[in-house]
Amino acid sequence: MAFEIIESCVNCYACEPLCPNDAIYQAKPHFMIDADKCTECIGDFMDAQCASICPIEGAILDDLGTEVNPIGSLTGIPMELLAQYQAALDATYQAALNDKSA
């Protein structure tokens, strides 16, 4: 039973010092959780510490692969707006890539 940090992590360091098991470590391209050490904070805290400070929705998954902080749960931004924003970001990114290769 362990949490996992996925690619949407922005490397803000906030979780790393909070882990009671020293399971979180800096890595490329983002912070990682050592599954052997992670206990999901059971026995130490009421709430898993990394997931309680992480500002990025969806960046931490539980052992079932479920987002601990689902989309919209932290910022209160409606899902459709976030989707539009993400699509616009992706389009800008793609355009920049195309420019580069052209």
Binding site: C12, A14, T75
Partner: peptide, 14 residues
């Protein structure tokens, strides 16, 4: 200092 302990509605860490 990248870590933050609060979220403000005018900030986005991404």
């Amino acid at each position: 200092a990248p870590a933050c302990n609060i979220q403000c509605h005018y900030c986005n860490r991404k």
